[in-house]
Amino acid sequence: GPIILDTYRVIADFEKTSKHEINLQTGDLVEIVEKNQNGWWFCQYESKRGWIPASYLEPLDGPEEAEEDEPNYEGERFVTARAYTAEQEDEISLELGETITVIHKLLDGWWVVRKGEETGHFPSMFLHKAGTREI
C-alpha cells in the first residue's frame, strides 16, 4: 500500500542556511520523510524536499504515541565528538573527547546532558555513545 507520511505544521518562518534545507513559512503543512535524532528532519513540501529543524514543527494531529523519550536521570554515557561553546544560557560548553551523561534526548536535537554538577543542552550531533567509535 501507499506509505502514509506524518504531517506537521510549521510554527515559525524558517530560512535555509545551507543548500539541502528548504525555506518554509508559518502555517505550511509538510510531510516528514525522515526524523533524524540530530534534530534535522527531512520533509516534503509541494515539489520541494529538504531538511528543516524539528523544533519548527508541531504534529498536525496528536501522534499516537509520545515521540519523545522521558528523561532518564540515571543517564547514558556519551563522548563528545566535537567541542561546542554555549551560545545560550541553558546550554553547556564541552571540549572534544569529554565523557558526559545524557539525561534527556529531545526531538529538537539539543539533548540535556550532565557533566559533574553542570547540566545543559548540547547538540546531539556532536555526541557518540561511549564505548563506540564514530562511523
Binding site: 540530530n38 547538540p123 556532536f126
Partner: peptide
C-alpha cells in the same frame, strides 16, 4: 548528498513558538 542532514546543529526552537510538547 541531499540524504545527508546538514552538518551544523539545528537552530534552537524559535523563542515565542516553542513546540508544544506532547
Amino acid at each position: 548528498d541531499i540524504k545527508n542532514p546538514p552538518q551544523n546543529p539545528p537552530p534552537r526552537p524559535p523563542p515565542e513558538t516553542r513546540r508544544k510538547r506532547v
